[in-house]
């Protein structure tokens, strides 16, 4: 069974229809790249999955459990939405690291707060916090940042900040990790280090959805590519096929603009 099942998502901002009948599935361990020009609805779709926007229609299910159904208000209660969010991780275009915390604290903050809800927190406080710290350090090491653990975000380069943000999202062990144009706010010479990290996550079979403008990256790293335009899915298929031999005219025109980049 697919780990993620998105059905008939529709979203309006006022009179504008931003998402129109979006449906797709994602298998465990696969990476899906979403491409398309700005304003095509890619980011809004990602924000819907992370409950930052509420779709007007449609449903979202993870591992067969319906997390959101526009027709069922019971799935939209705030207290439950908070827990459901944890199925997804989100890496923002603008990093959004917490400036008053060090790299390590950024990674461990949310896990630490969640651990306080554990029934055994009081007895095992020391051990739990030690474990969270060690896990955080391991994640930073995986991102190649163990020597930056005690730096504050403003002391890090953009690429380093984004890698801390990836570690922060991974710390909660989400089922599906979402990236919203993770390299768009970076200088060209810094995109490589972030893409390398995402590539290695793909090799470890992390289930991912990546909104990106890096076509070569989408082709090489993603299993599936979805092309969106005007709030609809124009074309979806195996990455290499969609990017090298697009079936739709609109996809072809979009990709032609990226030729030579």
């Amino acid at each position: 069974m697919a780990i993620l099942q998105v059905q008939n998502i529709e979203k309006h901002f006022g009179p504008t229809r931003v998402l129109d009948d979006i449906s797709f599935t994602l298998e465990q361990g696969q990476a899906l790249a979403i491409i398309g020009s700005s304003g095509s609805g890619k980011t809004t779709l990602l924000r819907c999955l992370n409950f930052l926007e509420t779709p007007d229609r449609g449903s979202i299910a993870v591992s067969g459990e319906t997390l959101f159904d526009a027709q069922d208000p019971a799935t939209q209660r705030e207290s439950e939405v908070r827990k459901k969010r944890l199925h997804f991780g989100l890496v923002f275009q603008s990093f959004n690291l917490f400036p008053q915390y060090t790299a390590l604290e950024n990674v461990t903050l949310a896990v630490g707060l969640l651990s306080q809800e554990r029934p055994d927190f009081k007895q095992n406080r020391r051990a739990i916090q030690e474990k969270i710290r060690a896990d955080g350090m391991a994640l930073l090491e995986q991102m190649g940042l163990s020597d930056r653990a005690n730096h504050y975000p403003h002391q890090l380069s953009g690429g380093q900040q984004q890698r801390v943000a990836i570690a922060r999202a991974l710390a909660l062990r989400p089922d599906i990790l979402c990236f919203d144009e993770p390299t768009s706010a970076l200088d060209p010479e810094l995109t490589g280090e972030v893409l390398r990290v995402i590539r290695s996550l793909a090799q470890q079979k992390t289930t991912m959805i990546i909104v990106t403008h890096e076509m070569a990256f989408a082709r090489d790293v993603a299993d599936q590519v979805m092309f969106m335009d005007g709030g609809i899915v124009v074309e979806q298929g195996p990455a290499r096929q969609v990017i090298e031999h697009p079936a739709q005219e609109r996809t072809r025109r979009f990709l032609a603009r990226y030729e030579g980049k």
Binding site: L52, R82, K83, L97, F98, L109, L172
Partner: peptide, 13 residues
């Protein structure tokens, strides 16, 4: 910035 709140929300805070 709104992004700070959103980052917290996404992290289940």
């Amino acid at each position: 910035p709104v992004g700070q709140k959103e980052a917290g929300q996404v992290l289940g805070m």
